[in-house]
Design a protein around this nucleic acid. Sequence first.
DNA 1: ACCTGAACACCGTTCAAGT
DNA 2: ACCTGAACACCGTTCAAGT
Lengths: 231, 231
Amino acid sequence: MADKTQARRTPLSRDRVLRAAVALADDVGIDSLSMRTLAQELGVVPMALYKHVSNKEELLGGMVDVIVGEIGSPEPAVDWKSAVRQRILAARRALLRHSWASRVIESRATPTPTVMAYMDSMIGMFLAGGLSVDLTHHVMHALGSRIFGFSQELFDAPRDLDPQRPALGEMTTRYPHIMQIASANHDRHSVVGSGCDDQFEFEFALDLLLDGFERLWRLGWSSTGHRADRL
Amino acid sequence: MADKTQARRTPLSRDRVLRAAVALADDVGIDSLSMRTLAQELGVVPMALYKHVSNKEELLGGMVDVIVGEIGSPEPAVDWKSAVRQRILAARRALLRHSWASRVIESRATPTPTVMAYMDSMIGMFLAGGLSVDLTHHVMHALGSRIFGFSQELFDAPRDLDPQRPALGEMTTRYPHIMQIASANHDRHSVVGSGCDDQFEFEFALDLLLDGFERLWRLGWSSTGHRADRL
DNA sequence: ACCTGAACACCGTTCAAGT
DNA sequence: ACCTGAACACCGTTCAAGT
C-alpha cells in the first residue's frame, strides 16, 4: 500500500519506466513482462506507459539501451586485440546480469542510437589498432553477437549423465558422438550434472577469432582479391 | 470452396500439418503463423491440430525438423575440413529457402531428436577426421548456430547512403566509423543501397574458424592445460 | 487538454456440451 | 468415444467518453 502511494507520487518518466522494466524482466523473466504487468508494477494504468514509450518494441529497445549503458567505456590497452577482448568480456559480464538481454538483443529489428554508438566505438578500436576499413568490416560480421558478449549456443552436452537412467543406453546408440563428448566432460568434472563451462567456451571461440583477425592483419589481407570475380 | 472440400477429404496427419505450417510461414511470415491461421489454411477447426501436435512449441519443433531434413546427408570428402564446410553451406542453402527458420531454431528451448541427430553427425565428421573428443567439443561450441548455416548478424553497414539525404551529415558526425565502412562498401559496389554480401561474410567467418580448428588440431591442442587451474 | 476505462482484435489452450 | 464450439485468460493497442 505504501509502495503504491510512493509510486503514484513519483512522476513517471521514460527512465523510470525503463528501469522498472529491466528490474521486472530480471525478476519474472522476459516472457512475463507485458505492458499490463509493467503498468501494475508501477502502480499506473497500462495506457500511462504509452506517453513514455510509443509501443512495446520501443520499450524493449530502451531496455537494451540500459544494459548497453552498463557495459561502460573501454579501458586503455596497449594493443587492439587485448583492448577488444577486455571490452567484449565486460559486455559479457553486463549481459550475464540480465539473462533475458541476449534474447531481446537478437530479436530486435533495428538498432537504437545507443547500440549504433556502441558498435561504432567497437569499430573505432580496430581502426585505431591499424586494421584496414575492409578487414574491420568483415571482422565485425565475423564477431556477430559476440560484440555484445554472447553467442548462439545451440550445442550443449547433456548435463544429466546418471548411468542409472534407463534412457542412457538408448541415447548412446542414437547419438554415439554426442555421448562421447558428454562422457569426456563428465569424467573431467567428476560431478554429475556439471554441463559445459560457458565462460571457457566463449573465450575459446573469441580468442580463436581474434587470433585469426591478427593473422590476417599481419598478412595485410584484403577482400578485394576474393570477391573480384563478383564485381 | 473446392479447396476446402479437398482439404476436408484428405485426412489430417502430423506430416501434412507440419508441411502446411512450413508453407504458410514461408508465405506470410512466422509472426502471422498462429494455430488459428494454420487451421484455417487446412480447412479445419483449431482444435483439430492438437491431435497431431501437442502444442505450438511442438509444432515449431516439427517445422524445424522439416527444414533439417532438407539439408541432406554429407557428401564424401577427402578431409574433415572440406566435408564440414560443404555440409554447413548445404545447411545454409536450406535455411535461406525459409527466412523464418533461423529465428525459430535459435528461439527453441530443447532440441528435437532430429536436431540431435544432425548435431551428432556433425560431431562424427570431426571425430572421423581425427580431431580429439576434447577439441571437437569446443569446436562445436565455437561454431554455435553456424552448424545450421546461419549466424547472429547484428552489424549491417547502412544500405542507404544517398548523399542527398539530410541525415547523412548527422550520421557521419555521430557514427564516424560505421560511416567509414559504409562508404568503402558503397564505393566498391558502385550502387546505392547494395548493403553487405551476406554469403561472403558467412564464408569469411566460417573459414576463419575452420582454419583455426585445423591449426589447433595440427598442434595437438588440448584444453586440459588451460582449465587445469579450475579443477 | 488531459487522462483512462472499456473495447477491439487478436492469441494459445481448456473444457464441457453435443453427436 | 469422438469432435468441436464456446469460453477462459491473456495480449498490445485504439478510441471515445469523462473530467
